[in-house]
């Protein structure tokens, strides 16, 4: 959560932690860092949500899921999309990165290493299965806008790599 302020009422955290990213269900919206503000006022929770990618279809689903999560408590939810500052992979929490790896998605590298890998074919992405770095890019675009498709030469498994976005 570097670089920008987030402002979330602490009593809302347990509920927000139960709302997951529909594309990567092991990550909660808090792990992903897309909730920039959540404030309760007169029975309504006002949420500011920053999209990962402009066209990410998960954002509409997350908005609906937030409403469903707070409904049993009798709270309404108003979601506002906030574009600036733009979301960055730096906003994913460390525990989120660990969950992502355990789920089989390689974590984003630093900006310069990411460029080496995606532009120059460097072998730096760590296979989430066997931890080898003998990996190569199969497709610049993966199953979602935020990922690229890789293959590990050591264990021969294909896997997704979460692209660095800054």
């Amino acid at each position: 959560m570097t670089g920008t302020q987030i402002n979330i009422d602490t009593h809302l955290l347990p509920i927000l932690g139960q709302v997951s990213d529909p594309e990567i269900p092991v990550l909660s919206v808090l792990d992903l860092g897309v909730i920039r503000e959540a404030i309760e006022k007169d029975g309504t929770v006002y949420v500011k949500l920053t999209p990962t990618y402009s066209g990410c279809p998960a954002m509409d689903v997350i908005g609906d899921d937030l409403k469903i999560a707070f409904a049993p408590l009798g709270k309404k939810v108003k979601v506002e999309l906030v574009l600036a500052p733009a979301w960055s992979t730096d906003w994913i929490s460390e525990s989120g990165l660990q969950k992502m790896e355990a789920y089989g998605i390689a974590r984003p590298l630093s900006e310069s290493a990411d460029k080496d890998v995606l532009l120059a074919g460097a072998k730096k992405v760590i296979c989430p299965q066997c931890k080898s770095t003998d990996t190569h890019l199969v497709s610049q675009f993966g199953s979602t806008a935020c990922k690229a498709l890789f293959k590990c030469e050591a264990c021969l498994e294909p896997f997704d790599y979460f692209k660095c976005l800054k």
């Binding site: 402009s54 066209g55 497709s139 806008a145």
Partner: peptide
């Protein structure tokens, strides 16, 4: 791979258009 790339680019463009 190219099919997925084309639709991903399409998704980004339409996402920007929505904004």
């Amino acid at each position: 791979e190219t099919d997925i790339a084309g639709t991903n680019i399409s998704l980004d463009l339409i996402g920007q258009t929505r904004s």
